[in-house]
């Protein structure tokens, strides 16, 4: 096989692989969105957070407005405290 053909194919192959990774990261995963834009943080206390996890979406009227950044236990109020990062807009 010619050297240039191999180079070409390997280039196509690697490009396809990276495209697939980008597709997974951008289209399938939850990267992007609010991380880059301006956000403000706010706290919310719950008696029981159920299955809530960090990075879960925060929705208002069904519209994505932010994400849960952290969940911790509040030693004073004995409640779960969720720290939300919401879009400034």
């Amino acid at each position: 096989m010619e050297r240039t053909t191999i180079d070409l194919w390997v280039g196509v192959f690697v490009a396809m692989g990276i495209a697939a990774l980008l597709f997974l990261a951008l289209k399938v995963g939850n990267i992007g969105g609010f991380e880059a834009g301006s956000v403000y943080t706010t706290h919310a206390n719950f008696d029981n957070i159920g299955g809530l996890k960090a990075k879960a979406p925060v929705k208002s009227a069904g519209v994505l407005v932010g994400r849960v950044t952290e969940i911790r236990f509040d030693n004073d109020s004995y409640q779960a405290e969720a720290i939300l990062s919401l879009s400034s807009q």
Partner: peptide, 19 residues
């Protein structure tokens, strides 16, 4: 289909671990 997927798949825990 797409939005629920994006909400559930985590870049680090799912995709990076897969890699």
């Amino acid at each position: 289909f797409w939005s629920q997927m994006q909400a559930a798949v985590d870049i680090r825990e799912d995709i990076l671990n897969g890699v």
